[in-house]
Design a protein around this nucleic acid. Sequence first.
DNA 1: TGGATTTAATTTCCTAGTCAACCAATATGT
DNA 2: ACATATTGGTTGACTAGGAAATTAAATCCA
Lengths: 156, 156
Amino acid sequence: MWQAMPDPSPASLQDHLGYWLRMVSNAVSHGFARQVEQEGVTVAEWVVLRVLFDATHLAPSVVAERMGMTRGAISRLADRLVDKKLVDRATDTADRRGQTLALTPAARALVPRLAALADGNDAEFFAVLTPAERMEFDRMCRKIAAARGLTGAPTA
Amino acid sequence: MWQAMPDPSPASLQDHLGYWLRMVSNAVSHGFARQVEQEGVTVAEWVVLRVLFDATHLAPSVVAERMGMTRGAISRLADRLVDKKLVDRATDTADRRGQTLALTPAARALVPRLAALADGNDAEFFAVLTPAERMEFDRMCRKIAAARGLTGAPTA
DNA sequence: TGGATTTAATTTCCTAGTCAACCAATATGT
DNA sequence: ACATATTGGTTGACTAGGAAATTAAATCCA
């Protein structure tokens, strides 16, 4: 089928796996962004809300670590979410440098709606895959994430 | 194994496939960004170079379409690449609104080095997958991309 | 031919990140 | 106990990209 070729040019762009991954990921995020903006939040804001949903309250630094963003970004993100009355910010009672972020009741009600949008968006984009493929895809994503310590859970 | 649960809370964040995809994609891009910055280019710049590599010259609008970015972004990206002496910009002879972007010889020499970095980065991140899994992952990415018209080739 | 429309690219304005400098509060070490 | 280092968070300067307005050229068509 294939003959050895002298001095091959670099693999076609399509052969860089990272390239396709970025294309697909960007498209999925983009699609999701369009969906959630109807609810008045950005993708990054959604992730913060979703992270906080599973905890009563969390330090900004922890949120930053789980999201893979800088503290500065979380600081501003928290500003916006406080403005939108979706997050309450309080100073930690024990260590007064510390802050703690928590969802407002409004946010707690909003998260399930956003989660449904996320699921719908996923369903739309991954519809071309068979159910078995979807499971495989998911499994491999997690496998890579786990290997790189991108667990979304505290590293310690 | 599983019992039906009344009023389940939204699927854990880990269950959103798009979430993991974004995590992995961001990590891969980030890793690659660190690698290519040694060569003095950004990831976006690399993609432009790589797209141009397979063509003698291309209109900015075509590059934008293939990369999934706006024309404005490509305009600025081209500015930077021209500054770096990696891209030549010329006005289309036939239609004087049109521009055409082409790699300089320096860029043409650089691209294979960058491609090697990309391949190395991919290898590093996807090392946890078996070769068979890597092929599957690649195939599924392309399948999704194709279904969404993210072919990297002209749509028409 | 000459005015309206379309098209290619650029530019302006805005948002959202990073990085690094910074401020405050807490630990540490002698 | 007190100066120093460390830690948690914020802020300022900067970069990259998107959306929409803008400019210039080409096409349409009466």
